[in-house]
Simulated scan of single mutants.
Amino acid sequence: MSECYEYVPHRLLRKRVRDIASGVEGELMAVINENVSDSGVERWVELAYIRGACGREFTTAVGNVEPAA
């Protein structure tokens, strides 16, 4: 059986970033390749974990992450 997640290196880790989908800015804490399937068929997605100003983390697709201005 395969792992449910795997950490992925990213050039913006620990840097201030912007989620283009929501417009929210924060610090990129991790990029994780996760199996998001709830069935028997695996579905792997790279998710970015961003910590916003309030201290709570949220996820977005890694393609939605850009450096904050």
Rank of each mutant, 00 (worst) to 15 (best):
V24A: 08
I50C: 11
R56T: 09
E57Q: 14
Y7C: 02
T59W: 04
L12T: 00
R18P: 02
Y49F: 08
V36S: 05
S22Y: 05
N64S: 11
L13K: 00
A61I: 09
P67V: 09
S22F: 07
W44R: 03
V45Q: 05
G23A: 07
E3D: 13
E6R: 14
V41S: 11
E6S: 08
S22N: 10
I50L: 14
I20W: 01
A69F: 06
F58W: 15
C54L: 13
R51C: 12
N33T: 01
V36T: 13
L47E: 02
W44Q: 01
A68L: 09
S2D: 08
V8C: 05
A69R: 14
E3C: 00
M29N: 06
I20F: 03
T59Q: 15
I32K: 10
E42I: 01
V41L: 12
E6G: 06
G23C: 09
P67I: 12
V36M: 10
A53D: 15
E3F: 08
I32M: 13
Y7T: 02
D19I: 04
I32C: 06
W44A: 03
R11L: 00
E34H: 01
A30D: 15
T59C: 09
V65A: 04
P67Y: 14
F58D: 02
C4T: 08
A68V: 07
R43M: 01
V45G: 02
R51D: 07
R43W: 03
G55Q: 11
G26A: 05
N33K: 11
G52Q: 13
P9C: 02
G52L: 14
L28W: 11
S37C: 05
G55V: 15
E42L: 03
G52F: 11
E27F: 05
R11H: 06
Y7D: 08
P67A: 15
V62G: 03
E34N: 01
E66L: 12
E57A: 01
D19M: 07
V36C: 10
E27S: 00
M29Y: 01
E6W: 04
R51E: 13
V36N: 07
E66C: 09
G40H: 06
P67R: 15
V41I: 14
E34D: 01
G26N: 07
A69T: 03
V65I: 14
A21F: 05
Y7L: 10
A69W: 09
I50R: 03
Y7K: 15
S37K: 02
C4N: 08
P9A: 07
S22H: 09
G40L: 12
V31D: 05
N64K: 04
E46V: 04
V31P: 06
R18C: 09
